[in-house]
Design a protein around this nucleic acid. Structure first.
Length: 234
DNA sequence: GCGACAG
DNA sequence: ATCTTGTCGC
């Protein structure tokens, strides 16, 4: 699949911030998903000294069964800067997605959606580029305040930033650290929570992101840069 | 001015 | 993100 739009990627931090403000205008938090959501994709990345690896896992929404896996490798060109994560990860994600034949009905990203200083986390970036519904599912907080949700699975509390509800802190399993859920594009906070819970089985992370995380790790190990270590074991 | 700060 | 085995607790 190809993106609906693109923009330069060789930017300074200042230019990236200006671009985020501009693209944030296109984000929608109104539910606009296919009638039956049939396929869901999970995306995650792994890093090497010089390379970034991205993996996209396509799942059947009703069963969480893997239907397709694509990945890509690309040299890291943008440093990690809180608030500018997408400029470091999206290039690799796009290379992987161009290898994927199916346009998923929903995408779960590892990181924030609108729970971001300029309401444009990585989930929003991916959503706007492909004009697809996306959810930001982060393991920790970037911005906002929230009460600690009850310790039981399904409990959650609103994540508020600048007096506005930008997401929720969700307990996906009993007595485990909660996840930070926020809309990426074409989805509301409530619907995003609904889907994350629906896609969560026996682990803290929902299946799309959990499997993508697990797979990029394997893919990274099978690289020539990591083969030397493997030769010693063999 | 001093912290906090997705992956 | 990444370096990494065993171990404590629900």
């Amino acid at each position: 699949m190809q993106p609906v739009q693109s923009h330069p990627w060789t930017l300074s931090a200042e230019e990236a911030i200006a671009l985020q403000r501009k693209l944030a205008t296109l984000v929608s938090t109104e539910d606009d998903l296919p009638d039956p959501v049939q396929t869901v994709a999970g995306i995650d990345l792994a890093y090497n000294d010089k390379q970034a690896f991205a993996a996209v896992v396509l799942l059947e929404a009703s069963t969480c069964k893997v239907q397709q896996v694509v990945s890509a490798e690309i040299p890291v060109q943008f440093p990690y800067v809180p608030g500018l994560l997408s400029f470091r990860e999206v290039p690799a994600i796009m290379r992987a997605l161009e290898k994927q034949s199916v346009r998923p009905d929903l995408i779960v990203c590892d990181g924030q959606g609108i729970a971001h200083p300029r309401r444009f986390g990585i989930a929003c970036h991916v959503g706007v580029l492909y004009d697809l519904p996306t959810i930001g599912c982060a393991k920790s907080r970037l911005i906002g305040k929230a009460d600690d949700p009850a310790p039981t699975k399904g409990s959650y509390s609103e994540l508020v930033y600048k007096r506005e509800v930008v997401g929720a802190v969700l307990r996906t399993r009993d007595n485990v650290n909660p996840l930070y859920i926020s809309p990426g594009h074409r989805i509301s906070v409530r619907t995003a929570l609904h889907w994350i819970l629906k896609l969560t089985t026996r682990y803290r992370l929902p299946e799309p992101t959990r499997l993508a995380d697990q797979l990029v790790g394997q893919i990274k190990r099978k690289t020539i840069g990591s083969l030397f270590a493997d030769l010693n074991e063999a």
